[in-house]
Structures are given as C-alpha cells and as structure tokens.
Design a protein around this nucleic acid. Structure first.
Lengths: 207, 207, 207, 207
DNA sequence: TATGAATGAGAGTTCATTCAT
DNA sequence: TATGAATGAACTCTCATTCAT
C-alpha cells in the first residue's frame, strides 16, 4: 500500500506488466525509433532508470512487448489442430476481440519494423503467421474434404481469408486515427464472411 | 555536364528525382525515424548539405517522397469514373505492377508513420484511399446493377477487394525479407480473383 | 551471529574491514572512477545499500581504504627514529612483504588519483612519503657520518633508494598483469641492493 | 582566416592535434574514467560533436593520445641499436626533456589505466618499455664488455637505471601538484647519475 | 541491521541542421 | 550549386545515492 506521502513504492511484481503495456502504447503511437524511453517511463509511472531494472535496453523492451502479447491472444488459432480445429467464425471472433484490445496494434508494429528487427520478424513469422496460416489451411482442407468448400488452393486462399481481417486491424491503428468516417470492423467482418463463404461454396452442378 | 575542371556538376534539374528515389529506398528499408540523411545523401550520390538545397528538412523530404510517387502509379484507378471505369482485372494488374516497383513500399511506410504524420495520412487518405475505394465501389455497383454480381454491400466489400492485394504488397516489403518461403503475388492475385468472383456471383435460384 | 531464522546477520563489527578489503581490490583493479559500488558490495558479500551504513559515500570509502591500510604496513620505516633506526635491508624486506600483499597496490592508486583527491594525496605525502623519506635520509646520514657511505646528497639520494622498490610495486599492479615475462621482485631487490651499496661505497683513496 | 564574426571555422587539419593535446591535458588531470568529453571539447575550442568527427569514441581518443605522443619523444632511446647506441647521459637528457613536456604524464596515465586497457598496456610494453629496456641493457652490456662497468646483471639493472627517472616523472604529475617542497628533477638526475656510475664502477683489485 | 527497488543527475553518442568555404 | 566541418539538442544508458520495506 505505502503511505500517501511515500515518494515511491516497491512493486517488483507489478512493474514489468505496467512497463510493457506503457511501452506497447508508445511504440504503437510513435514506432520503435521515435519512441523515447522517457515517455514510456512516464506513462508507466516510473523513471527512466527503473526501466533498466527490468529490461536491459530499448531493443529488448521492444522484443518483450512483441513477444509477450500477441501470441497469448491467438492461441485458439495458433494452437489449433485436428483435435480442436478452428472455424471461420472462430477466426473472425478472435480478430474482433483483437481489434478491441491494445495489442491489436502489434501487426502494424511488426510490419513497420520488420526489416530493422529480423529476429522479431522471424519470431512473429514462426509463432504467429506460420501457425495461423497452418490452422486456416487445415480448416479449408477440411471443408474441401467434406464437400462444404470448392477445391480451392488452400495455401494461397489462406492469405485471402486473413487479409480483410488484418486490414481492419491495420486501418484502426493507422489511417483510422485520421480518417473522417470510421471503419466498422464488425461490418467488415460480416461482409468478409459473406463474400468468403460464397466464394468457397461449391458451384452448382449444371443440370 | 560542366567542364572537366568543375569541382561538381550543376544538375539542378536532375537532383530532386535522384534524391527522392534514394530517399524512398532508405525510408522503405529503415522507416522514417531510423533513416539517416547521410545514408540518403550517399545513396543519391551527393552530400548531406545538398539535400537541404532541394528540401527544407527531413520531414518535407519524407512528405515529398510519399506525395510524389504513389499517386501517379494509380491514376488509372484513382481517376476512374463513369466514362472510364475500372475492372477487377485492371485493379489486379495495377497492383501486380506496383509489387514490382520500388514505390510498392509506400503503403507500408504510410501505415507505419500514419500517427506521426497526420498531414501525410490525410493526403494519402484523400488522394489514394478514398479515390481508390470510390472506384472499386462504383465497379461493384455497376456489377450489381448489371446483374453480374450479387447485391453485396459495396462500401465494405471494397475493403475485401483490396485487402489481399494490399497484403501482398505489405508482405513483400516486410515479412518477405525474412520469410523462408516466398509469397508469389501472381498466384495470390489469381486465387483472390477466383474467390472474389465466386463470392460475388449471383446465387442460383432454388428450383 | 543471529538466529538461524534471521534474514541476515548482524555483523556490525565485522563489516567495515570486509568492505574495505573488497573496496581495495576493486579500486586496485579499476581505479576510483571506474569502480562501481555494486561490484564492491558484491565482493564484500553485501548489497549496495549496506555500504552506506558504514561509509557516507564513495569518496569517503576510497579515503578510508587508502588511509587505513598502507600506514600500518610501513610503521617500521615511518616510525623509525634514532632509537630504532632503519637499514637498507629493513627497507627492502618491508617492500618485499608489501609486494606480496594486496595493499601493495596503494601507491599505484594514490599516484593515479592524486590530482582528483588532494586531501588523500596530502595525507599520503605526510604520513607515508615524508616519514619514509625522512627515515631513509637519516639512514644515509648515519652511514655518511660513520664513513660507511660516501658523502652523497641524502635528500635526493633517498628518492634513488626507494625508486626501484616502488617500480617493482607499480609494475606488479599495472604492466605486470599484461606483460609476458614477469618481473621477479626478489631479484630486482638484490640487484638494487648491490648497485646501491656499491654506489654508496667510499671511493678508495688513491695511493 | 575567417571573419571575426564567424561562429566557427573549418580547420580540418588543425583539429586532431588540438583535440589530442586537449585530451592529454584532461586525461592527465582526471584520469580516463573521470574525464568528460565536454571538458576535452571545451579545452580544444570545439563542441562535443566535433570530437566524433575525428575519433570514433572516448576509448579510441584515449588510445590515440597514448599511442601518438610518447613514442616519438623517445625514439632516440627506443630506436637505439649497435650502430647508434645510447648512453646514460642520453637517457637522462631525454627524461629531463620529457619532464618539461606535457607528454611526461603518459607513464602515469598508462600505469593508472593499465588493467582497464590491456590493449594500450601491451602497446606501451612493446613499443616503449621493451625497446627502452633493451637499449639500456645493451648499454650496460657494452660497458661490462669494455671493462667500464662491473659485471652486473644487465636485465634487472636496467630497471634500476630507469626507476629514479620514472619516479621523477610520476612525482611531477601526481604528488608534485600537492607537495609543499618541489622535487628538482635536474638534481634528482645528477644524484642518480652519480650513484649509478659509482655503483657500476669496477671494484678496485685488492693489492 | 540489511535489503534492493527506485531515483535522477550526468555521461557518451548520434544526427538533423547550419554555414564557412 | 555543392561541400562537409561544425554545431547542439536529444537520446540511450549508467550508477551513486536514497528510502520503503
């Protein structure tokens, strides 16, 4: 608790998540290079020196932000397998949730800094992108096998499945801050679902 | 050209495009904040001071890069109107061309720096995004009116039309630099076209 | 000692010497400015905060290290007087002992920081240098009076008496850490003794 | 020349030596770690940024100071060989000159930072110490061979030859700044010369 | 007495910008 | 027109010192 007059408190356990979320916010707004650690510290309610008690430097802080946040939010998708497969609606639901969360900005951050931080990019490719695509491809293949979907190319169709959802996220955290008319992600998702399911629907056999 | 004894060449007219394309390349690779004007100058074959003869500062150079490059490449789409409408195949063709050009990196740059440069974002929204979406929506509406397409929501469907194309561009200039297996944009475009046209196809009337 | 459940031991009396010897070791290796109190604390088996229970700040700790250690090791020399005079062999023996002790590094430290810590330098000049030189000069004067030594200038000869011994100490704690072939202080002392005694020997009267 | 109102001048050639001598002065006074580049810059009449135009960082500046200054001052000694041998009086003369020059502080600096900068220490050992000792040993051996000197151990006697001269230098740049009564290096040299030559003189054969 | 989380001033370093040449 | 030496404001990172626990 600490007395109200205390200049500061020891909060060893609480600091890291607070710092990470402050850092996410500032990185999201400014990008990696333009982010000042002073701002991160201020937003986390500590001083600059304190950041260095928990993270060895700015780059590692950035990596921790990226690594620590997006993966947990997508486990339903990235951990999908034959036993617990994922559906299009699952995917959409998870993206809608992501769009409402601060960590929805991570894809924008990663795309923007990908060439500066190949190590992070690789992590993101391996842990998020590859696994997500794999789950979507499995979903498509199952649909094809079951006759629910046409025989499309699962590999590349997977990109088309995520693209509008990703666009929603990117928009929200970039153009959305400036655009006059907002993009309603729920409507986007519904529209995408409709187009996609029709696009995948088996063609009627000519009589 | 200058005489052989000239210490440097007077190339007042040739400089700006050279500087812009050098700047585009470096901004593309590093992002705005991490780009050093020294690197831009070196790549343009001049020195740092020379940049300031043509652009008042780093920010204006960045703006000039963004403003001067993407719009011309998309005039067929952004200038489409009833007299010269655009088709899905036009759109795809223009994006494929963009993917092969250095300026294909602009969307990534704009998304990454959108919150830092609202003025640019607004420009991009007005000159590229709004006009592009408008052309696509007109295209969809024409199809719906003609009975070629189902009665989808043209406003939000437009996002679904561009999303996979945009994803191709973004991938190429971010994850693509690190990913093991490349993304073939031509295949992506074909797949998207197939899914989209089927998604838009009028449903057969139940007998 | 403290009960076995005590979170730490109360060792008020034992701490200062432990801290001083840890500090001596680190100051010796790094010099004053480059020494981190964290390192001193770690080597002393305590934490940084504890240092401040015993010494008000880094500078005072440094002074305590210098003041507390060298003087006791040289009392035979510095306290020499007519009643208990010192011989060249005493001097050499004390320096050889110093060379084997951690406190042999003190002269190097004092020389290196003399201009930063005039107060320490004055202390060292008064308590060590002046008294040591005085004893050596007395020794030389006695030898001259007794006819054992030539009539050299005792004031400046005293520097020549200590110089090689000091060089041995300095070498050991600076160049010696890097040099390939070691400097054998015992041999150095023997050589110096031989040269010095011959240098001081009265010249034979020409027949 | 530059107009008197010019905020600064371009003096590409003049800067490095000015910076080096400013750096030598500040390093000499404060030691490496306690030296602030701001102070070096101010003393050199430039700003901190300018230092980085000529030296990549503080450590390299320090190395340049050490490497660039002492060696040239001692070439007569370090380059001595059979063709151009060195005498005791040469040695003394060079040290007296060194004592009057700002670079006489280098030995103190090197000894003080030897453990922090092994690379410099090795340079100094190889280029200054080893070559200097070698020249002195050759000198002693020549004297022994010629019968001018007794058969002393040339290896260790060499240390005894330099030690008082070195002590003079070290004193001047450390204790000398604080001590009340100055050490007269000329007298020290004379006294040392006398003691040394007598110490090396062949003993008279007993009749 | 002891800890070590937290502070905050200060250092080295970078780089957009200026300006003497 | 072109240069690139020089500037100076920022920024990251360190570490002596403090103080809640």
């Amino acid at each position: 608790m600490g007395s109200p007059t205390a200049r500061w408190q020891r909060r060893k356990e609480a600091r890291p998540p607070e710092i990470l979320s402050a850092a996410l916010a500032v990185f999201a707004e400014r990008g990696y290079a333009a982010t000042r650690l002073d701002d991160v510290a201020r937003r986390a309610g500590v001083t600059k020196g304190t950041l260095y008690l928990y993270f060895p430097n700015k780059e590692e802080l950035f990596k921790a932000v990226i690594r620590g946040t997006l993966v947990p939010a997508l486990t339903r998708i990235t951990d999908a397998d034959a036993a617990s497969p994922v559906s299009i609606d699952d995917l959409i639901a998870d993206f809608e949730r992501l769009a409402d969360s601060p960590i929805g900005v991570i894809p924008k951050l990663v795309l923007g800094e990908a060439t500066n931080f190949p190590e992070i990019t690789r992590f993101y490719l391996d842990e998020v992108v590859a696994r997500g695509l794999k789950a979507i491809r499995a979903m498509l293949q199952r649909g094809i096998d079951a006759g629910t979907f046409r025989a499309v190319d699962p590999e590349y169709s997977a990109y088309c499945v995520v693209a509008p959802l990703l666009l929603g996220l990117l928009w929200k955290h970039s153009l959305g801050a400036v655009a006059n008319d907002p993009l309603d992600i729920a409507v986007l998702c519904r529209t995408h679902r409709d187009l996609l399911l029709n696009g995948l629907r088996p063609r009627p056999v000519a009589p």
